[in-house]
Design a protein around this nucleic acid. Structure first.
Lengths: 208, 208
DNA sequence: CCTACCGATCGGTAGG
DNA sequence: CCTACCGATCGGTAGG
């Protein structure tokens, strides 16, 4: 919440950690490396975080909460198409506006301690259900076709999540245009999923 | 190619590294850890690989080649819709059949040495172009709508790539069904992208 | 492929 | 927030 002016030392640490972890990975960054970036001894970081895992958790949990908060801000009374559009826009906004944190979130969540990993998975399942519910409602109302809701949800969220790899806040398209185009494409796929074309049996050989 | 019987020691190492790196990450796995899993001292691994980076490269380059080989096996004369379906199926087949390698490919490619990273990015750009070309051809022929080709390509490949996180070779759906459903959804989005709905200005507050 | 070893570095603590 | 330090471990090499 308080971000703009006079970041606390703790915030400074989290910001720097977000940048370093996102570039070199959690295990590829040492506490000493991190300290150097904010003129602090590595050992002094432990006055603010009891462990490296706690620091990772600050980032990952913060990102998870940002996703939930953005989805919470979507008007609940919207019809499925409009609601899914808003959810997609919100999701992309969080990724785009907090790219280093989003990168750490997606790349390094698996290196959290077991308890926290479980906690995070529960949060993710909840979050995912919001998308699934909207897609199911859209299918029920005829706004979307008769899709496999769980699979369709995974496809939509996959397309959104992987965008942390290529989203460019300073890119050719502004956020609104980008989000609208992506939402349009993903929702088009829900409205009119194509029935499968018989696949020619391509190479049956395993590639390796 | 030679996989079924009597793996060489080198293959054994790569297989074990694929499993460990995919679980704990490249920097989270030590050469000694790896050695233990195949009854070898960590130092003995250096008789087969000159460096840990070489070992990561064996995995990542192998996965990259598998993607290219699978795409090469797609009949070139197919019309855009059928061709894109086949490309999607091929991409998912590589991920699903080599899940640990695919996981390392997507999670740890950024930890390669700079030269190799550059090499890999060039391969990826080539590979990506195959998808972009088919989508552009489809748009030109009217099989697809007038999409932003580069963006539409990123959305399709993002949806496919992130699937390494949840694809389950022993899951509810078989590979063919799964691939057909995913391809149907993604191609539906290219055929009939929805024009954007005016977005209500949801929370303008940054989430963090 | 092993033993023995290198210098460097790791996450973290004690005690101020 | 620092100095000094802990035991453990890292990637990698020498020499067989």
């Amino acid at each position: 919440m308080s971000v703009a002016l006079k970041p606390t030392r703790r915030e400074e640490i989290v910001t720097a950690a977000g940048e370093l972890f996102s570039k070199r990975g959690f295990h590829g960054t040492s506490m000493r490396d991190l300290g150097k970036h904010i003129d602090l001894r590595g050992s002094s970081l432990y006055a603010h975080f009891a462990s490296k895992d706690d620091l990772l958790w600050a980032i990952v949990d913060g990102a998870a909460r940002a996703f939930v908060a953005a989805a919470d801000a979507v008007a609940p009374e919207l019809k499925p198409t409009a609601k899914l559009t808003a959810l997609i826009e919100a999701h992309l906004r969080v990724i785009g506006s907090e790219l280093p944190y989003a990168t750490v979130f997606f790349n390094d969540w698996s290196h959290l301690s077991d308890t926290r990993k479980q906690h995070l998975i529960a949060m993710r399942d909840d979050y995912q259900r919001r998308f699934a519910d909207v897609i199911a409602a859209g299918a029920a109302l005829g706004e979307f076709g008769a899709v496999d809701v769980d699979l369709a949800t995974l496809v939509v969220l996959s397309a959104l999540n992987y965008s942390y790899q290529w989203l460019d806040p300073d890119g050719r398209l502004g956020h609104a245009e980008l989000a609208a185009a992506i939402a349009g494409q993903l929702i088009g796929g829900l409205r009119d999923p194509q029935t499968s074309i018989a696949l020619t049996p391509t190479s049956t050989a395993r590639a390796k």
